[in-house]
Write a protein that binds this DNA or RNA. Structure first.
Lengths: 218, 218
DNA sequence: GCGAACTGAATGAACGTTCATTTTGTTATA
DNA sequence: TATAACAAAATGAACGTTCATTCAGTTCGC
């Protein structure tokens, strides 16, 4: 942020740069420990999940992380920055799970099944992260930039879909539509499970996969 | 809320009710005009949509509605009450659209198509309301009570699904799963459209309907 | 002229953020 | 190894702001 500011102003005003500024991260992390940072990330997820963004004050986040309020600002520029960083981190974790052990094979359907189940497993295993993500995805909590950043990691799935469409095994519609009918529904089911309205078990998952595939197959 | 309190405590404690309490709305509306109330509801939707719940302060809501801050409290008990009432109102409007001109007929698929398109039309026509609803549905903004209240109006769709399952034309899975794969995806597509990532037009809608039906048909 | 509707300044609680200070850790000196 | 000097990390009280809510006073409809 400071770096941006300097670059923008000096180039806009055509000032001579007196010193060749060493580019440095605006928030240099302590060399050793990410322990407190991680505790803050976890605390943020928990509190935002329980009562929403507006009920996760910095003081509470700090307390839950076992840290003083001011310490947050050694790791994050602001509350907004904290939320954005947590979002990106969780999204990365999501994507890593989605493509764990995935190598593009011959069968589009087999590949899709693998990824879909990876995602479903993640949502069931990492409930906290998943709930946090679906809150972020439906609310203006997170910057548009961070959203785009989080979307990048989904490449392999998009490529798989393109391949399937080229072969005529997947309906020729926008990837957003494919996502809407295959991945997005899982979030709804998880949410219902969280509210004790529905129980997601192995057989339900398998049935859901078949429904997902039926909706997009050609 | 007051009414609930009275009923609960007196029945739990087995107190004799001294007076047959006249049930009255905790917020008796001014006899004539709902104009200001409606303006407040609209303003709330707009502001919550633009920047989220935490960026919709009462003062702003009042200003946008052309009303003094204090006036809000003639119509609503608190901000939470305002949000809940708006949610229920919008949800009712949604359900009315969903079942407009709907009478259960012979063909389960035809009936479903009718309702599905009604819902899709609503989401496209009443974008503000739809965006508001999907924010509420993924965030602890709204009370669980109001959620349940909003769910009631979906009865006809549940009955249709039961009928379809009894006849073996719809997969025998929980209605939550059916909802997740047919209705919920529309919200995602709308959201992408709002972010200018995707364009929903007539043909996309029809294609989406086919995908929805394919996912739940037996 | 009366009561209901409405106003907007006042209120106090809660919030994000800052900063003077303390604690902890690392390096230099002998 | 012991100690002094320094730096980094962490603290939490304090600050200014913003918020939801209240209420004494004003306007409106009849």
């Amino acid at each position: 942020m400071n770096v941006h500011f300097v670059i923008l102003t000096s180039s806009l005003l055509n000032l001579p740069s007196p010193i060749p500024l060493p580019i440095q991260s605006p928030n240099p992390l302590p060399p050793k420990g990410r322990a407190k940072r991680d505790a803050l990330v976890r605390a943020t997820i928990t509190l935002v999940n329980n009562n929403g963004f507006h009920a996760a004050p910095m003081a509470k986040i700090a307390k839950l992380a076992g840290v003083a309020a001011g310490t947050i600002y050694r790791y994050f520029d602001s509350k907004q920055d904290l939320i954005n960083q947590v979002y990106i981190e969780v999204k990365r974790s999501f994507s890593e799970s989605a493509f764990r052990d995935y190598v593009a094979g011959d069968s589009v359907e087999e590949d899709f099944r693998k990824i879909w189940h990876n995602i479903a497993d993640f949502k069931l295993r990492e409930v906290e992260k998943s709930v946090f993500l679906s809150q972020c995805d439906n609310t203006p909590m997170v910057d548009e930039d961070s959203r785009r950043e989080g979307l990048k990691h989904l490449r392999p799935l998009l490529e798989l879909w393109e391949r399937g469409q080229a072969r005529g095994v997947i309906r020729p519609v926008s990837p957003y539509v494919l996502y809407a009918f295959t991945i997005y529904p899982i979030a709804f089911l998880l949410h219902m499970q969280q509210r004790d309205l529905y129980q997601l078990s192995r057989t339900e998952i398998d049935e859901a996969y078949r429904m997902a595939w039926n909706s997009i197959k050609n």
